[in-house]
Design a protein around this nucleic acid. Structure first.
Length: 967
RNA sequence: CAUUGGUUAGCUCAGUCGGUUAGAGCAGUAGAAUGAUAAUCUACGUGUCGCGGGUUCGACUCCCGCACCAAAAGCCA
């Protein structure tokens, strides 16, 4: 039908997208270069300049601990922070980011000590200053390492000026903040049992303790002979039975507690009478190996606990004399139950909170028999040395030493010998506190410590602060001199602050509601000293002039300034050094980090920052950590929280939802992912998961993220190609076709939803909206329909120009929307279109949220059209499957007239459906047949005005003619 | 042991203030085209909405119990 001469190859007359932007990303190779360029052009500084004077948004960075490589948790946390700052900057606000590190504390000290141990050096023999210098160097090393890793991740911030809690200035501020507590009297020295780690030789705060389930704990039953019982003399000579899981506390037993309302009874066994709570008899005797057939057991007559008032028993080791010879009184304790044990509780005020309180009320005091390292004092009467020290000299073992407490250990052996041990085994299951860092067991131990009281009225509350509503609007004044306690203030701030997600409020609320006084002191070396001068009676000096000298000294010389040699210098002429002792404890590191708001936001060292912060953003574990320490610190010193909003994220689990741990070998290393697939992939992952909950990462998930990434990348690649050589703008777009108007309205809708997602910190919605828009509305709809116009319309075609104008707008919008997520790829896209450094400041990250026109589009009409379009493509599918037609262009379509919105032409329908001619009928069906028209050799459409296959349609004929003429 | 949160398609997530066939993207399968080409387009989801009860005309959605996962946290003498 056509001879060869008419079959021209029109390929080179078609305007195909052209771009140098590669489809393959090669992120691992490309990202470091982009990163280097940012540094070169001073991107962060440029951004600050460009946002100067704008409304501020202050995200205050919670300091990660400077110890070890970046892990997936750090990565997630920092990506979220980066997303917050970048989106706020994009919105035109001034949102600086000053990263920081937590540098003091036990874990670092521990690592440095490990080095000593390896070299067989005694830490205590090293000069403290030298030791601290090593800790400082160790922390600095990891600060530098993590800084590079976070930069590589694309986190934008003031990396040249991070804050470190070990900076002298920070240390001085921490001291100054502590002195605010001291000067206001909001500190006290107490001597009560606290969690103590014999391994680390320091007191621990709740936050530093974790509970581990044990199944092999010892449990013993010990008999105390009753020597006196005024209300029931017949009990004299019987034995009171106590049960304990900590045999090592028996040597410091000082009393026995009973429940006044509980019912007690004697049992007879092996010729002796034992007093046990009635409810506990069966279980207790089972431990002793009691067999019912022996005929022994419960004796007649029950005793209510109150009969034991005034009774006394003697310690099984009473023959040792001294401490052990003192009769042990029976004391009524409301904490005594019959749920476990014997209903009689052995009391050692040194090692239990209940014990301490009950004994204190009865004028029985701790004896401090256990030393810092967990061993009994050498002069303690009971328990000989049964272990060898490093030099082979005999010494006592630590009380957390397993053999020490075992049924064969020295305690049990001695008790057995004294005929006081009724049972001993190592099979008790319970959860037991361990040190968070060393994983070693901790003990309750009574030592003098410094506390911040939670329930004392804070009388220094001259807080001249207006507290704005976090959402804006109404301003409520903080009530001054309200005689509230720290706990009350903290609770009311928890009411005020915005928590995202909302459940965080309950979480921190219930913790603050029930927490004990804050134990501030630690008996360690690497930290900020508690710079107090104490009098022999335990009271401390409250002289602002002295404190000012101390703060100044720390500002000059760091924490090393607090040394005995400078005592007189600090005290000055007004105080006699002989009247005071310097406290040599250091501060809980949570106090350090609780002060970051003071030395970072308030100090003026970072002029871009201001107090209070708009937002704190950390993992949900910080409800008991930084969120809380900052809240308490600030409430006590400033009357309000240092933040208006708190955002928390969950933790990253492995692909199966299991916790990641090095020992399980299921960790995902973000450094490796960056090396293998790129930082943008981790970022896209972090911003697509529901970070408010625990979430997963794994190979399959990352593969999915990679696919998502490629689709986004390809959308940009298409835009770049289609916009090749485009220089126009909206002003010369002329009449805009309805399809373009519709797309613009979709864009405007997307824009609104993205803004809302930013407002809600809902980033997985943010990325999903972006991806869905690119896939659904652009790639599969708009781009597909307009492909014909882009490829085949003439250069001056109104449609084509309008399309490219809208593509340009889409480009500028999408690249900005994507920039906070795909920081590297967005920059690559931007550079690809605007390679000149000067253009728009040289980086996509300096741009602001795009202005998107709000255009009126008949959305109802378009949803009707898109529904009809779906019906048509669906109807075409069977014909393609049967190979009747191949391309949708070959289809002639008859649609029900009723399904077509008004004022839509058949030609417009054909364009939308990407089919041949479309007509309408009165039926209900969409009918598709193979077109009988010929196929245009250039645009491949089947049209009535194409004379024969391979010839040109009218449109193409004129485009080619114009082109030929030009050539 | 008690507490809190979670459990919707292979994966990431929506959703339902109780009401007709529970939705997207990605993956998968099949196909088209070969002019976004390591790309693009089309079609395809019988998912016990963790399990078991209850309330209700009706529950994935409310209530109770259980299981599993996770967190935090108190007691455990």
């Amino acid at each position: 039908m056509s001879d060869e001469s008419t079959q021209r190859d029109y390929r080179d007359t078609v305007f195909l997208p052209k771009t140098a932007f590669p489809m393959k990303a090669g992120l691992p190779q490309k990202e470091p270069g982009i990163q280097a360029r940012w540094q070169e052009i001073g991107l962060y500084e440029k951004l600050r300049e460009s946002r100067a004077g704008r409304e501020k948004f202050i995200l205050h960075d919670g300091p990660p601990y400077a110890n070890g490589d970046m892990h997936i948790g750090h990565a997630l946390n920092h990506i979220l922070k980066d997303m917050v700052c970048r989106t706020q900057n994009l919105l035109g606000k001034d949102a600086p980011y000053v990263p920081g590190w937590d540098c003091h504390g036990l874990p670092i000290e521990w690592k440095v000590e490990e080095k000593y141990r390896k070299k067989k050096l005694d830490k205590n023999a090293v000069d403290p200053k030298e030791f601290r210098a090593e800790c400082r160097a160790y922390a600095q090393h990891w600060v530098d390492t993590q800084r590079e890793q976070l930069k590589r991740l694309g986190i934008m911030g003031d990396w040249d000026n991070p804050y470190l809690t070990m900076d002298f200035q920070a240390e001085a501020t921490i001291v100054a903040e502590l002195m605010k507590f001291a000067e206001a009297g909001n500190l006290y020295r107490g001597s009560k049992p606290v969690m103590w780690s014999p391994v680390e030789e320091t007191a621990l705060a709740e936050a530093e303790v974790e509970y581990e389930d044990l199944t092999d704990s010892p449990q013993i039953d010990v008999a105390f002979e009753i020597t006196e019982c005024p209300n029931a003399p017949e009990l004299e000579g019987a034995y009171a039975v106590v049960w304990t899981t900590t045999p090592w506390t028996i040597p410091v037993n000082q009393a026995i507690a009973y429940g006044a309302d509980l019912s007690y009874d004697l049992v007879e066994w092996n010729g002796r009478k034992y007093l046990i709570a009635f409810a506990c008899q069966a279980e207790t005797m089972k431990r002793w190996g009691y067999e019912p057939t022996t005929g022994e057991g419960s004796l007649a007559g029950a005793y209510t606990g109150s009969k034991l008032a005034g009774a006394k028993a003697r310690h099984p080791m009473h023959h040792l004399g001294g401490f052990y010879a003192t009769p042990r009184p029976f004391l009524a304790g409301d904490f005594v139950t019959t749920e476990s044990g014997t209903g009689l509780v052995h009391m050692s005020p040194d090692h239990g909170e209940d014990d301490f309180e009950l004994c204190k009320a009865n004028d029985i005091h701790p004896v401090f028999a256990v030393m810092d390292d967990g061993r009994y004092r050498d002069d303690w009467a009971w328990l000989g040395a049964d272990d060898l020290d490093g030099e082979g000299k005999p010494r006592r073992r630590s009380v957390i030493n397993k053999p020490f407490n075992s049924p064969e250990g020295p305690i049990c052996s001695d008790l057995r010998e004294a005929d006081a041990l009724l049972s001993a085994s190592a099979d008790y299951a319970h959860s037991y506190p361990h040190s968070w860092r060393s994983k070693a067991k901790v003990i309750f131990r009574c030592t003098p410590q410094w506390f911040v009281p939670m329930d004392e009225v804070l009388d220094s509350g001259d807080f001249d602060l207006a507290v704005p509503d976090p959402i804006g609007g109404a301003v409520s004044l903080f009530v001054h001199h309200d005689h509230s306690t720290l706990r009350q203030r903290a609770m009311s701030e928890i009411e005020r602050v915005r928590f995202v997600p909302e459940k965080g409020r309950n979480r921190i609320g219930s913790m603050v509601e029930g927490r004990p006084d804050w134990v501030l002191s630690r008996q360690r070396a690497w930290g900020v000293p508690i710079t107090l001068f104490v009098r022999p009676d335990g009271s401390y000096l409250q002289d602002p002039a002295v404190n000012a000298r101390v703060v100044e000294a720390v500002r000059e010389d760091g924490v090393d300034a607090w040394e005995e040699a400078r005592k007189a210098e600090f005290l000055g002429p007004d105080h006699n050094p002989d009247d005071y002792e310097m406290v040599m404890d250091i501060l809980d590191v949570w106090f350090d980090s609780g002060c970051t708001h003071a030395f970072v936001l308030e100090s003026g060292r970072w002029p871009d920052l201001q107090w209070p912060a708009d937002l704190y953003l950390e993992g949900s574990d910080q409800h008991r950590g930084w969120f809380q320490s900052s809240l308490l610190q600030s409430c006590a010193t400033r009357g309000r929280a240092p933040y208006d909003q708190v955002l928390t994220h969950g933790f990253t689990m492995d692909a199966k939802g299991k916790k990641m741990s090095k020992s399980l070998g299921n960790t995902i290393d973000p450094l490796k992912i960056m090396e293998q697939t790129g930082a943008d992939i981790i970022r896209l992952w972090a911003l697509s998961v529901d970070f408010t909950e625990d979430h997963r990462i794994g190979d399959e998930i990352l593969k999915g993220v990679g696919d998502q990434y490629r689709r986004l990348r390809n959308t940009f690649r298409y835009l770049l190609g289609a916009l090749d050589g485009f220089v126009g703008d909206m002003s010369d777009a002329g009449e805009i076709p309805e399809l373009e108007v519709y797309i613009l309205s979709l864009l405007s809708e997307l824009d609104g939803k993205l803004r809302q997602a930013v407002e809600d910190y809902d980033y997985n919605t943010y990325t999903r909206l972006l991806v869905d828009f690119c896939n659904e509305d652009l790639s599969a709809f708009f781009f597909d329909i307009r492909k014909d116009s882009l490829y085949c319309d003439g250069p001056d075609s109104v449609t084509r120009n309008a399309y490219r104008t809208v593509l340009d707008l889409l480009f500028h919008s999408l690249v900005r929307y994507a920039a906070p997520v795909l920081v590297y790829t967005a920059e690559e896209v931007w550079q690809s279109r605007y390679p000149e450094d000067g253009e728009q400041g040289g980086s996509v990250h300096l741009l602001e949220w795009p202005p998107v026109p709000t255009v009126p589009a008949d959305r109802e009409k378009w949803s009707k059209l898109r529904a009809l379009r779906e019906r048509v493509t669906e109807a075409i599918e069977p014909l393609r499957r049967d190979k009747v037609i191949r391309s949708s262009n070959e289809a002639t379509v008859i649609v029900p007239a009723g399904a077509v919105p008004e004022v839509v032409t058949d030609a417009q329908l054909a364009e939308l459906f990407i089919t041949g001619t479309v007509t309408r009928s009165q039926g209900d069906e969409v009918r598709v047949t193979k077109s009988t028209d010929a196929k245009c050799g250039r645009c491949w459409r089947l049209l009535p005005d194409v004379p024969e296959d391979g010839a040109l349609c009218g449109r193409c004929k004129s485009v080619v003619a114009a082109r030929d003429t030009a050539a």
